[in-house]
Amino acid sequence: MNGSRRRVRLMQIAAAVALVLTTAGCSGGLAGGGATASSSGPIKMGMLAPFSGSESAFGDYMKYGAQLAINEINDKGGIDGRKVELVVEDDACDATTAVAAANKLVTEGVDISVGGYCSGATLPTMPIFNSAKIPMIIPAANSNKLVEANMPGAFLINGTGTQQAESALKYAQKIGAKTVATIDDATAYAADLASSFRSQAEKAGETVAFKATITPGEHDYSSVATQLASAKPDMVYWTGYYQEGGLIARQAKDAGYTGVFMVGDGSVDAKFAEIAGKGYTDNVVGTFTQTPDMLKGADAWLASYKKVAGAEPGPYSTQSYDAVRVAAQGIKDAGSTDFTKVVAALTALKDFKTFAGPLTFTPERTPSAGGFVIVKIDPATGKFVLKDDLQG
């Protein structure tokens, strides 16, 4: 079964790479909105997000956050008198699907991309948008692999894996954890975050007592849970997604693990508690950026979001909202949708107000401050709420 999964995954990656090379070699940027830099008609913002597959819950969170920002921009007259439209495509958090969806956005003539949730699906789309001269404002995906790709038009709104790992280590030290562990699912985002945390922990004098990589999509992780319980680390950092995370948290507790079970931002969703079950999340905390319900004075924004979406916001609603605002500011400052001018304008942004705090991009086009806090699960609702802002 595992061998079959690996073969399927390799085939998917190979297909994705082939599509990327075809696009990079043949498109020449002619289909991209950024390349044509039209000065009339609506400005099209493209969004790739998961609307199917295991991460589909996040798609609507991102779409409606982006749509709220677009509505607000259009209500104020648009950008230099031009209305803004959101063009959405499903990437299913899958590399092959994402490549096809990115090509479709290029064909549809989007001027700028404001999507990207799973790093493994976002990474192969970067050369596609770059070849088409379409700038990318990535709201959620934050693997260091995205930074290492060094695409000149790609900017991250979310803090990097390095910054998130720093916050996890800071909390471990704050609670006096001396031994730590990591479990990941081998995806680009999860493996990168786990590796960064281990590296920083070891440099800080922490002992990495255990590390493991699991196969996503399975239901029995009792072997890893038993090994974790036997290693007895003070804190384990699960860096994958909530489907497997909830199961591992439950099975680890059943195996006798009593330490802190920390999760990365890919697991911060109410479904984690639903999967783990009642009584299995008392020791669970997570690294995440603050959501509107954690912020003072956000009532009006929450009400506006509910009016657009017909539901409560979730993880990455605010980041997607801010991605649109950042994109709009870049286009406005550039006075054009021209790729080079927009990239220059985005690079020059300084202390732009976002939910995560003032945004200034580093030379690597990442946020200068990660904005990560520690969250915990409210036993009454299953939702993650603020535990520690790491300021004290």
Results as ranks from 00 to 15, higher is better:
A311D: 15
Y280P: 04
L302V: 14
G310Y: 09
A298M: 12
A276N: 11
D293L: 02
V308W: 05
P315Y: 13
K271Q: 15
G314L: 05
Y316D: 04
G314K: 04
K278Q: 15
A309T: 07
G286Q: 00
P315W: 14
T281V: 13
A309V: 06
S304A: 11
P315R: 15
G310V: 07
T281C: 09
P313A: 06
S320I: 01
Q290V: 08
T289S: 11
T291F: 14
G314E: 03
G310Q: 08
E274S: 12
A273S: 14
K307I: 06
N283G: 05
P292C: 07
F272V: 02
G310K: 08
Y321G: 08
F288D: 00
A276S: 12
E312H: 01
K296I: 09
V308N: 03
K307G: 08
N283F: 06
G310R: 07
T281H: 07
A311T: 12
P313K: 03
W301Y: 12
G286P: 02
T287Q: 00
G314V: 02
P313L: 05
G297E: 03
T289Q: 15
F272N: 00
E312D: 14
A309F: 06
Q319I: 06
Q290I: 03
A298Q: 13
A323M: 08
V308P: 00
T287K: 00
M294Q: 15
G279E: 07
G286E: 00
D322I: 08
S320W: 04
K307Q: 13
P292A: 07
G297V: 06
Y316R: 01
Y280H: 14
T287I: 01
T318N: 10
L295Y: 08
W301Q: 05
Y316T: 01
G286F: 00
Y280A: 09
S320E: 01
K307T: 10
M294W: 13
A273D: 13
A309W: 01
S317D: 04
E274P: 01
K306R: 15
D322C: 08
F272Q: 03
A311Y: 07
F272H: 02
K296A: 15
T318G: 04
P313I: 04
G314R: 00
